[in-house]
Nucleic acid binder design. Structure first.
Lengths: 258, 258
DNA sequence: ACAGTTGTCTCATTTTTTGGGACGAGTTTT
DNA sequence: AAAACTCGTCCCAAAAAATGAGACAACTGT
């Protein structure tokens, strides 16, 4: 009927459409901004923003009529990471990988846009809070963990990442969309990814995908070392080690078959 | 009308009621579990869970009929932290504080339940992804940052934290609700909090509240050192330094007046 | 084999959302 | 300084979505 799509969103979809505005546009938005960005009429947007403020999903600068993402989102995000078995299982696998290969290892979860570094250190006593969760994000197109994950995502996800821009960190960063697509195809073919100083000069990483119980690739496990230490001839051997540990982690997350 | 409260939630409220089940109960829940925990009828819960799965707020283990918090929440939480000016402003203030006091400093955001450690390291070039966000959570009843924030939260928040249990980390951890209430009153009175080896033995911290543009205390800034170095006679001086920097940060966040 | 539980689907009823329009307070333009 | 404009806020009848009891099948464990 209307000029553009007339899809009637469910409430959560519409809610996320509003919250995503902040993600894209960053920082702070007014009711008017939200109305424009989402196409939601002013009066409706106004009511929504009020509800989202009351529920803690948005925070309001009282001085101006401006809103930001709320603290409750941080809480939920933190809990989502917590409730993932990945945090629980990760440590031992990371230690085993580092020990057997003699290099640093990373585990990162793909959140739909970036790679989020996950690790957990268990303290002395048992208990919910006796641990710490660490989150650190980095781009997915120029890290080994990112490329390992991206290789197994639907095409539309890859295209979205590309459309957001491939900013160069080093001269080795892949900035050409086609080269990235080739790289992902190669990664899919051999089962592991290589990062050749694309984010940090003189650092080479090998990454492999980690699957959850649903069979989806949700994370990447990697091995990192100086380029001069991780020579070409060693890569195949290291790759098998990384894949082995990534598969082990997948199984611990509930993934079956292979 | 009904026996219990007949409050009709808005859609986001109900959604959060479902998501919060996972926070409280942890791990994974089935449709039936959610129905029981929230009081929402099975068929309604079923539809909701389906929507939340489709929007990425929940993840489904395909093997069993079990759900977990979704990756999208991690994404949103990460973005919420990003969009906070606090990440941008924090670094300089932290460095200044550490330098002027000669001890380690922390900045933690209160997410409603825990204290989330926030820091950011800016790399060489400008750009969105050229930084890293680190999140690490710790309890708020036994850290200086936590007590500094909790002292300025509504009573119901304090009581909720207490009702969740005050687990001892060290012999010095405050586990008596009344002692915690007194401690918070004292903190409010003098304007800064002290953590006396309550989470880590032989570590002493001084914390002060940080306010956002809305005037709400949303974070805590702290100075940490070994107990033997942070002696009683030095505390008042250090406290003023911490408060000064916390206030500076508050102003940078848009807080006015004092 | 059986009783109980659980996931899933349908549909008439109820409830909420919706958004055009109105009003007032600021802000910019003329 | 007045006019034109923008923006936040509120109201209400029309429209759309959520609701939840019930039915059915699949599964569980005794």
């Amino acid at each position: 009927m209307t000029t553009i799509e007339n899809i009637s969103d469910s409430a959560p979809e519409k809610m996320l459409r509003i919250l995503d505005c902040f993600t894209l546009q960053g920082g702070q938005l007014s009711v008017g901004d939200i109305s424009k960005l989402t196409g939601i009429p002013r009066s409706t947007a106004h009511r929504w923003v009020g509800i989202l403020r009351d529920t803690g999903l948005l925070d309001q600068d009282n001085s101006r009529d401006v809103y930001r993402l709320g603290l409750r989102l941080i809480h939920l995000g933190n809990n989502a990471l917590w409730s993932m078995d990945i945090s629980r299982e990760a440590r031992h696998v990371l230690e085993a990988l580092s020990r057997s290969a003699g290099a640093r290892s990373h585990l990162c979860v793909f959140d739909g846009n970036q790679m989020i570094f996950v690790t957990r250190t268990i303290g002395g006593r048992a208990g919910r809070f006796n641990s710490t969760t660490v989150m650190e994000s980095s781009p997915c197109y120029c890290t080994s963990v990112g490329k390992a994950v991206l290789a197994y995502q639907p095409q539309e996800t890859v295209e979205r990442i590309i459309s957001q821009g491939l900013h160069p960190y080093t001269p080795h960063t892949i900035t050409d969309p086609d080269r990235l697509r080739e790289e992902l195809a190669l990664t899919r073919k051999r089962g592991y990814s290589i990062n050749n100083g694309e984010m940090e000069m003189h650092e080479r990483c090998i990454g492999a995908p980690v699957r959850n119980a649903a069979g989806r690739v949700i994370a990447g496990l990697s091995l990192t070392d100086k380029t001069r230490k991780m020579t070409d001839d060693k890569i195949p051997g290291f790759a098998q080690t990384v894949i082995k540990h990534a598969d082990l982690l997948s199984v611990q997350l509930g993934y079956r078959h292979s």
